[in-house]
């Protein structure tokens, strides 16, 4: 199994903390994750939220690409808001800054009305955006005409007048094909099936809903990613002490932004959703997702912005040392596993 850190949301989680410091801490946390053997670090994106969630996965993705050297850089842009060509160009730039380390996990929009978008169904729009992204990143000049995009513009005064009817997005990404995942609930799952790309369930969906969403989305040998709220400490009690309020706070802010439903108790919210505990508990929980859904890539949040930066760094280190090896070091002798 592979592991990522995030998605980092960078919202105002603690009014006494400046947002500028949250951004800098988040960058440092990704460097810590790289050092302790994670495979990727992730920039989230949501628009117009009352708690100031990061609104540009591209800008932060470029920053993560610059600060890290080896890990993949996951960006989670919301699709369907603007012409997909902008995102195609931005991702190509990030992929060159990172020398081919980008993964794009496209999110289903909930913000289209604020963006003045009142067209037909989201899935058609996302399919079309994905088609434009793939053509843009491909080696050949292209044109694209659909309900949502006309590339290039049909006019008789400019390039078509000169006999050109194609566009080439420049630069091209550094890697041969930018890995594309889709994140969200049922729309994303359906999209994953249609496009044949990995479905990436967000952390707020409980295990009970994931069975249906992951059904028929997996191809033999392909990546099966999942995001989870994760926090780890030496003891399960201590992990709860440190993280329960921080995670509850995040969900309150997400509820305020309309991204999740309100809940009654933290226990109810946490059940089959959050992975909080000592290494043994985390490992046990992760095996459940692996066995029941076939998940082989977990993006673990760990970084909650109301928490003390140092506690986050400790948890990232502990996860890297005590949990990741269990899933990556096949044949790890028990005697070595038990060494503290």
């Amino acid at each position: 199994m592979r592991f990522g850190l995030g998605p980092l949301t960078m919202e105002i989680a603690d009014p006494s903390k400046k947002q500028v410091d949250v951004y800098e801490e988040a960058l440092e946390q990704t460097v810590t994750a790289e050092w302790w053997g994670f495979d990727s670090v992730w920039a989230g994106e949501r628009h117009f939220t009352p708690d100031h969630f990061n609104s540009s996965a591209s800008v932060i993705g470029a920053a993560l690409a610059q600060r890290t050297e080896f890990v993949r850089v996951g960006v989670m842009p919301v699709l369907g808001l603007v012409n997909a060509m902008y995102l195609a160009e931005e991702v190509a730039c990030i992929d060159n800054i990172s020398n081919g380390r980008t993964i794009v996990a496209a999110q289903v929009p909930t913000e289209q009305e604020q963006y003045g978008w009142r067209g037909s169904g989201t899935i058609e729009r996302m399919l079309d955006d994905i088609a434009v992204l793939r053509k843009s990143w491909g080696p050949n000049p292209f044109s694209h005409k659909s309900e949502f995009h006309t590339i290039p513009m049909e006019n008789d005064v400019h390039i078509q007048a000169r006999g050109i009817d194609k566009i080439s997005v420049q630069p091209k990404p550094a890697q041969l094909e930018v890995p594309l995942w889709v994140s969200g609930s049922d729309v994303a799952s359906q999209l994953a099936k249609e496009v044949g790309v990995p479905y990436f369930a967000p952390a707020h969906l409980p295990l009970s809903e994931l069975h249906d969403l992951y059904a028929d989305t997996q191809r033999e040998g392909a990546t099966v990613p999942l995001a989870r709220e994760v926090f780890i400490a030496r003891t399960t009690e201590h992990a709860h002490e440190l993280a329960a309020d921080a995670i509850a706070g995040l969900y309150k802010r997400m509820a305020r932004a309309g991204l999740v439903k309100e809940w009654d108790s933290f226990e109810e919210l946490a059940r089959d959703r959050f992975i909080i505990g000592d290494a043994e508990t985390c490992i046990e929980q992760l095996y459940r997702y692996q066995e029941q859904l076939g998940v082989n890539y977990v993006v673990a949040r760990i970084a909650y912005h109301s928490m003390h930066h140092g506690e986050t760094a400790k948890a990232v280190q502990l996860f890297g040392q005590a949990v990741v090896p269990e899933f990556r070091m096949f044949g790890l002798p028990d005697e070595i596993r038990k060494l503290a």
């Binding site: 540009s56 591209s58 800008v59 932060i60 993705g61 470029a62 920053a63 610059q66 902008y86 160009e89 931005e90 190509a92 730039c93 990030i94 800054i97 997005v169 420049q170 630069p171």
Partner: peptide, 8 residues
């Protein structure tokens, strides 16, 4: 093509 992204 993407100045604000690269500026990140």
């Amino acid at each position: 093509p993407s100045l604000l992204t690269v500026a990140g």
